[in-house]
Computed example of a mutant assay.
Amino acid sequence: MDLTGTLAEADWVSHRPAVFGAAYRILGTVTEAEDVTQDVWLRAADADLSEVRDLRAWLVTLAARTSYNVLKSARVRRESYVGPWLPEPLLTGPDTADQVLTDESVSTAMLVVMETLTPAERVALVLHDVFDLPFGRIAEVLGSTPAASRKLASRARARVAAVEERPRASRAETERVLQAFKAAADAGDMAGLVALLDPEAVYTADGGGKVTAARKLVTGAETIALLTARQIELRRPDESRIIEVNGQPALATYRGGRIVWLDTVELAGGRITAFRRLVNPDKLAQLGHI
């Protein structure tokens, strides 16, 4: 802040990743998180901040309060969502230096589990476990008490514990498996695809009713291999390549320079246990073109 108590541009640039990171974790969509971030910027720019002692906490709290209101209304829309819902991918990479945008709490696997939480649980968990805000401040956002907020965070933490405790494959291992999966898919090598999938692997597709996609979870290596091979035959993509989303490698597939689906995976013992394919064009649009 400058001496007049207004928000200095340098301060905003410094804290913007935290503001966006809080909104994205709570909402699970880049577009809504960007809207919240812009709203926080406009409100902070007009506010008298002369009495604010911790600007980062103040901005994150404002982002959480705004996101909480958005999420409560978004829940109604998501209840009518066609098929499984996957988070909108956040494009990261070597230039994303701020850990608040790349740590485990922003991974696709974590955001999928976060979607099962209530809006209040999600806010309490993000503000306390990611941003280390006290429960008194969290209670102000939720309109509850510190004790109730503590219980919400504890309940949410128990729900996501399985993801946090799950062994995380290295970046190199994930890239290797994705490249091998791409090679087998391009060659129509069904045996190669099956070998890369755990026998109990689970496939989730998010088309949002905009494009054809499986509307229920698909289980089993052979079934998933056949499904992915058929999609290549039907949609005839031009190329696939590794990009980084949510701090992890992902396989992006393009046709005519436009991304048509994005694959993210979880591994155990060198095999894919969870295969997630995002094909909803609205969620893919913000990733851009080749």
Rank of each mutant, 00 (worst) to 15 (best):
A183D: 09
G269H: 07
N246C: 03
L267K: 08
F181H: 13
Y254V: 02
R176H: 09
S240E: 08
Y254P: 13
R230I: 11
W41A: 07
G21I: 04
E9Q: 13
A33G: 15
W41P: 00
T264V: 06
L196N: 14
R277V: 11
V211C: 07
V279N: 05
V218M: 13
E175C: 09
L284G: 09
S240C: 10
R65Y: 14
T92E: 06
R277H: 04
V70R: 14
A124G: 13
D132K: 05
V60I: 11
N69R: 13
L27K: 09
T61Y: 01
A172P: 09
P84E: 04
T219M: 04
L262W: 06
S105A: 10
D198K: 07
A148M: 04
A185Q: 14
R171G: 01
S80A: 12
D11T: 04
Y68M: 10
A285W: 06
A162C: 00
S14W: 07
E88C: 04
V52P: 12
A44C: 02
G208V: 03
R255L: 10
P146K: 02
V76E: 13
L287F: 06
G220R: 05
T264E: 09
R236Y: 01
V126S: 01
L7H: 09
A148F: 06
G192Y: 03
F275H: 12
P167L: 03
T253F: 08
N246Q: 13
D189L: 08
T66R: 10
L62E: 11
R171D: 14
L111N: 07
L3I: 12
H15K: 04
S170W: 01
V76Y: 08
T102L: 05
E104L: 13
A252Q: 04
R56V: 02
V123M: 10
K283V: 00
S80T: 13
I259Y: 05
A169K: 06
T92V: 07
Y68L: 09
P237I: 12
S170T: 15
G257T: 07
V40F: 01
D11S: 15
S240L: 08
V13E: 14
T145H: 11
R271C: 02
R276K: 09
D129C: 05
L27P: 05
F135P: 11
